[in-house]
Design a protein around this nucleic acid. Structure first.
Lengths: 131, 131
DNA sequence: CCTTTTCATCGACACTCATCGATATTGGAG
DNA sequence: CTCCAATATCGATGAGTGTCGATGAAAAGG
């Protein structure tokens, strides 16, 4: 299917004019030249996906509880009470954080222990600097 | 209304036991002590809100186009074509980025110029390090 | 075997959000 | 003042998401 843009502005007309002939029209146009190549659509999706993992207050607190733990390992039952959320909801958020590569899950006996993947938050911050 | 937790686990029972009497039950429990205080609910909401602003691929690309611009100023008409989105949708995303304190909007004549607020992305990355 | 405990998954619901077309608003040009 | 171009806002809609209760899965113990 063809991607047809309905919204047409004169700004694009100015761009075509300036690249093909004179540059006198640039002064009154709004089009700004690029200094470097913007992020590709794929890179933007990756960055947005990583940010979305930390875009919920419950998940931010989950990560905070892990980083605040002395042992670095926290089991699910330690999350439910301080957050005031049900156990299925906590498990749901933990899964999102694991899928995003932020938390690590290790099952030992009955309990599931969650720990922070080293450098995960750092690489998340580094992604922001690349935008 | 009273907040009643339906989900009850023995882990909490262990915690009460250890704080009130001996600590022999701690070894078999899953409860981990805290090294420092986790983020408050309010702080978590603030951080999550900031992250949500960058949790959409279109908004990530919008910011990237601004930072890639030689002049540092980009008008709306420069956003629509590379993103393949309609003009109302682009305006919608730009408003979210402005409200989040990431972009600055300046209306000059017919056009609206958007520029990056200095240090906005840096403080966003700094927020992550505080989790 | 059966029971208990922890945790994940499922199904459903309400709510939010990204997107668009239509319309309003603003500012320049004639 | 009238027309037009650029942008913001509105209303609607379909997709996504957070939340929960109910249920399933797995492990430990009797």
């Amino acid at each position: 299917m063809l991607n047809v843009s309905i919204y047409v502005n004169m700004c694009d007309t100015y761009r075509v004019m300036t690249t093909e002939s004179s540059s006198s029209a640039l002064a009154i146009a709004c089009c700004a030249p690029l200094e470097r190549q913007p992020l590709s659509a794929g890179d933007a999706v990756s960055i947005a996906r990583a940010m979305k993992a930390m875009s919920d207050p419950a998940r931010v607190r989950l990560v905070s509880i892990v980083t605040s733990s002395a042992s670095g390992e926290v089991c699910v039952c330690d999350f439910t009470d301080p957050l005031g959320l049900s156990q299925p909801t906590v498990s749901h958020h933990l899964k999102i954080l694991v899928d995003a590569g932020i938390l690590h899950r290790e099952k030992r006996g009955i309990w599931a222990y969650y720990s922070l993947i080293p450098g995960a938050l750092g690489s998340l911050a580094e992604l922001l600097s690349r935008v």
